[in-house]
Design a protein around this nucleic acid. Structure first.
Length: 492
RNA sequence: GGCGUUGUACCCAAGCGGUCUAAGGGAACGGUCUGCAAAACCGUGAUUCACCGGUUCGAAUCCGGUCAACGCCUCCA
C-alpha cells in the first residue's frame, strides 16, 4: 500500500502545496461542505462540486480508498425564511432542493458522495458536542442560546490568518447582549416562534451554522479528517469556527489538509447572490450540455477564479463534440479492423497515463490533463484520417489506436468526461436538435442519399443544389468515400 | 485598515530555478484531403512572460519595490 503515488495539494492552513498526509495508508477521509438546501444550485456550486468530484475521482484512480462525505444543511435561517414565504414546511422545501441538487450534479457528472448526511439527522451529535464544549469551558449558555467563546482558544484564527484584536477593530460584527465577546458565535439557538426545534439541555432550539459540519464530519469520519474542502469564501469564518469547535472538543487536529476552490466570476466580478449576478445550473443546462459545463470548469485550475461567459462555454461545447466525434471514429475504426489486427506491434508508445498522473499529483492540474487528452485525440484522428503511406505501417495502425483508446479511457474517467457511449451521444444530440428545428430525420436521410447518388454520377450541380438546400435547413454534410455523414448545426 | 490572490500571444489557459527559443484550446492565415466544401490532420503565430531593481552560473518561475485587477474580513461554493 505504501507505494501509492502521493498527491501534492495546496493546503490553506500553511498556504503552500504539500504532500497529502494520511492517518491510515491508502485510506482518505474527505469531507466537503455541502449546500444549504433552500434554493436551486448556481454555477458556483457547480464549480466547487466538480472540483472536489475530480479530486475524489483522482484519488480513487491513484489507488486510494476514499470515504467522501458531503453534507446537506437542511436546518437554517434561509430555509425557514424561504419556507415561510412559500407557506410550506421547511423540510418539504429542503427535500425538494436536495432532489434538484442531485439532478444538477448528475448532469455535471458529479458522483454521489459515500455519505451525504443531513443536519436534521445529527441533532444528538450536535448537542453532545455542544455539551462537551461547555464542559471544557469553551462555550457558555445564555438565555437558551449557546455560544462558543473564541477567546478560550489560543490559536483561533490560524486558518483564516485572523487576529482577534484586528477583527474587533474592524467592528463589522454585530453586538449581541448575550455574547461575552462580539466574535463569539452560536452553537445553539433558542427557538423562535414558528421555527423547527429540538429538545436540548438549554431548552428547545436548533443548531447554529458551524457546529453541524463539525458534528457530521466527526460522526462519519472520526475526529481528524485528511482533507476538508469547500469554497474559499468558507475559509473564514465557517471553517475557522469548525476548527475551533472540533479541536476544542476533541483535543485533536481537525483536518490536516484544507482545500478551497476559487470563485466563478461574471464579467470579472464575483458571482454572488447579493449582487444578483448568478446563474443557476438549470438555466445553463438549457443552453449547454452538462459535460460542456464540466469541461469548461476543468479548463481552469481549481484555485484560480474562472470567468463565466458565453465564449469559453461555446468553446467547451465544441470540444466536447470533438471529443465524442473522435471517440466514435476511434471505436468504429477499431471495430472495422477486428481482433486480429490488434496483435501487431503498435507504431509508437504513448505515455498519456504517466503524464496524466503527474498532472494529477501536481495539485490536481486539470488544465494540463485536458492538454494531454487533446494530444491523444489529435493523434488518434491523425492515424485514422491520415494513415501512414507504407503498407506495413498501415497494418499496425489498429494496434496503435487500441493502445490510445486504452489510455484515453481511464483519463476520461478521472475527468468525468465522455460518460456516455459516443455513438449514443451523437445520436441524442442530433435527435434533440432535429426536434428543435422540427426536422424529419427520414426526409433528411433521403435528401442526403439523393445528393450522394447525384455526386456518384458526377452530377455536381444537382449535388451542390441539394447540399445548399440541406445547409439552409441547418445541416452540415461530411463526405466519406462510401457515403455521407451529416449533422445538425447548433441553433444560434 | 487587516489578510490573501492574480497580471503569460488577438482571446481562454498551463507553467512551482535549467529539458521554456513557454503545454493545450479558440480565433486567424497558409497547406493536405475533397469535383468543390465541411470535418479531420499539418504548418505559421509570444526570443518573450505588467513594469523596475536584486539574488543566482542560470528566473516567467525566488526576493524587494511600483502599477493594475480581484477576493476574504457580513449570508455565500
Amino acid at each position: 500500500m505504501s507505494e501509492l503515488p502521493v498527491p501534492r495539494l495546496y493546503n490553506t492552513l500553511n498556504r503552500q502545496v504539500e504532500p497529502l498526509v494520511l492517518q491510515d495508508p491508502g485510506f482518505v477521509r474527505m469531507y466537503v461542505c455541502g449546500v444549504t438546501v433552500y434554493n436551486l444550485c448556481h454555477i458556483g456550486h457547480a464549480r466547487a462540486y466538480v472540483a472536489f468530484d475530480t479530486l475524489y475521482r483522482a484519488l480513487k484512480y491513484l489507488g486510494y480508498q476514499v470515504k467522501y462525505v458531503r453534507n446537506f444543511t437542511d436546518v437554517d435561517d434561509k430555509i425557514i425564511n424561504a419556507a415561510n414565504e412559500e407557506g410550506v414546511d421547511p423540510f418539504e422545501l429542503s427535500e425538494r432542493y436536495i432532489k434538484t441538487f442531485h439532478e444538477d450534479m448528475e448532469a455535471l457528472g458529479v458522483l454521489k458522495a459515500d455519505v451525504e448526511p443531513k443536519v436534521s439527522e445529527h441533532i444528538d451529535e450536535i448537542i453532545a458536542m455542544t455539551e462537551k464544549l461547555i464542559e471544557k469551558g469553551h462555550a457558555y449558555a445564555a438565555e437558551g442560546d449557546v455560544y462558543f467563546a473564541v477567546r478560550s482558544m489560543p490559536d483561533y484564527g490560524k486558518l483564516g490568518r485572523r487576529d482577534l484584536d484586528d477583527l474587533r477593530a474592524g467592528a463589522r460584527v454585530e453586538i449581541d447582549e448575550n455574547k461575552r465577546d462580539p466574535l463569539d458565535f452560536a452553537l445553539w439557538k433558542a427557538k423562535k416562534p414558528g421555527e423547527p426545534a429540538w429538545e436540548s439541555p438549554w431548552g428547545e432550539g436548533r443548531p447554529g451554522w458551524h457546529v453541524e459540519c463539525s458534528a457530521m464530519s466527526t460522526t462519519h469520519l472520526g475526529a481528524t479528517l485528511d482533507i476538508h474542502g469547500g469554497g474559499s469564501d468558507l475559509v473564514f469564518p465557517h471553517h475557522e469556527n469548525e476548527i475551533a469547535q472540533s479541536e476544542c472538543a476533541t483535543g485533536q487536529t481537525y483536518a490536516s489538509h484544507w482545500c478551497h476552490n476559487g470563485f466563478v466570476n461574471i464579467d470579472d466580478e464575483k458571482m454572488s447572490k447579493s449582487l444578483g449576478n448568478f446563474f443557476t445550473i438549470r438555466e445553463v443546462l438549457e443552453r449547454y450540455d452538462g459535460e460542456a459545463i464540466r469541461y469548461f470548469l476543468l479548463t481552469t485550475h481549481y484555485r484560480q477564479p474562472i470567468n463565466f461567459s458565453q465564449k469559453p462555454l461555446d468553446e467547451a461545447s465544441q470540444r466536447v463534440a470533438y471529443l465524442y466525434t473522435s471517440l466514435a471514429k476511434l471505436s468504429q475504426r477499431l471495430e472495422q479492423a477486428g481482433e486480429a489486427a490488434l496483435e501487431r506491434a503498435p507504431l509508437e508508445e504513448f505515455d498519456l497515463l504517466s503524464r496524466s498522473q503527474d498532472a494529477l499529483l501536481d495539485d490536481l492540474n486539470t488544465p494540463q490533463l485536458l492538454g494531454i487528452l487533446a494530444d491523444g485525440l489529435r493523434k488518434a484522428n491523425e492515424l485514422i484520417d491520415h494513415p501512414p503511406a507504407s503498407k506495413g505501417e498501415r497494418k499496425r495502425v489498429p494496434a496503435t489506436l487500441a493502445q490510445l483508446q486504452a489510455q484515453l479511457h481511464p483519463l476520461l474517467e478521472v475527468l468525468g468526461l465522455a460518460r456516455q457511449s459516443p455513438v449514443v451521444w451523437l445520436q441524442t444530440r442530433r435527435d434533440r436538435r432535429a426536434q428543435a428545428l422540427q426536422l424529419n430525420i427520414d426526409e433528411v436521410e433521403a435528401l442526403v442519399a439523393q445528393r450522394f447518388a447525384a455526386k456518384q454520377e458526377r452530377n455536381f450541380e444537382e449535388a451542390d443544389r441539394l447540399r445548399e438546400q440541406l445547409n439552409a435547413l441547418g445541416i452540415d454534410l461530411f463526405d466519406r468515400r462510401d457515403g455521407t455523414d451529416w449533422d445538425i448545426r447548433e441553433a444560434t
